[in-house]
Design a protein around this nucleic acid. Sequence first.
DNA 1: ACAATATCCTGCGAGC
DNA 2: TGCTCGCAGGATATTG
Length: 270
Amino acid sequence: MPELPEVQTIVEDLNKKVLGRTFVDVWADEKKIIKKSWDVFKSELIGKKIEKIFRKGKNIIFNLSGGYSMLTHLKMTGHYLYDNYDKADPMNSFIHIKFSLDNGKVLALSDLRKFAKVELKETSKIEEELEEIGPDPFEIGFEEFRKRLRTGKIKQVLMDQKKISGIGNIYSDEILWEAKVHPEKKVQNLSEKELKEIFEASKKILKTALAARGTSISDYRDTEGKKGSYGDIRKVYRKTGKECPRCGEIIEEKKIGQRSAHFCPLCQKP
DNA sequence: ACAATATCCTGCGAGC
DNA sequence: TGCTCGCAGGATATTG
């Protein structure tokens, strides 16, 4: 599922490929992904030029001409595919939206589970929406990071986009393993040292994953339909029953909230 | 005010 | 072999 490293990779690719292009047509077979009337969406989008593409948390925002912006969230299984992507991979075959561009090429949105969200609104309204989303670990220093966490189980808090954005289930597991902190530990019970470790681990893991172009254990693909390689070097996520790469203990899995957490019971004591 | 739970969706792997 | 069933999960809505 796309988290910060995957979304950032996509945004960088999109900036190289579709920045400055104008939408000439749009097609969809699953119109519920669009949050407003299809006819209105289509008529508002066509003719708009892509002036800027950026990321806020896990959201991708296209600033368009005419004071409009398109906000997209890929949720679990969404990914963008551009022009000549890898069609041999079945994961790239769940295409529900196709944006036709003025260079004759197509930007498509593939989404197996159809959870993705596409919103087209005035830029000021989109900006209001984005204010709800907290900063990612690269945008703040340690003091701000600590201030934003406050209470709750650390894994859940790390995944709360209002507090800190960009981190989901995969990287929260990896970050907490790196920082040697149990996922169920309460924020208020964490030492200064542990909080600092978590903050530093957040940046380290996300940076490493970005360099690997993300994690593609299940569904994530880049705009060419290619996989990222962080899955090959991950330590704990979906490694239940395997040995901890640091101490050799068997990795455990536990439901925290509705999410599965993977951790080493020896390195990450409760 | 906050936290726990249900909801959306569909391919896949496990189990019979 | 082929079926059924439950799981995966981000964010939001709903309930406690």
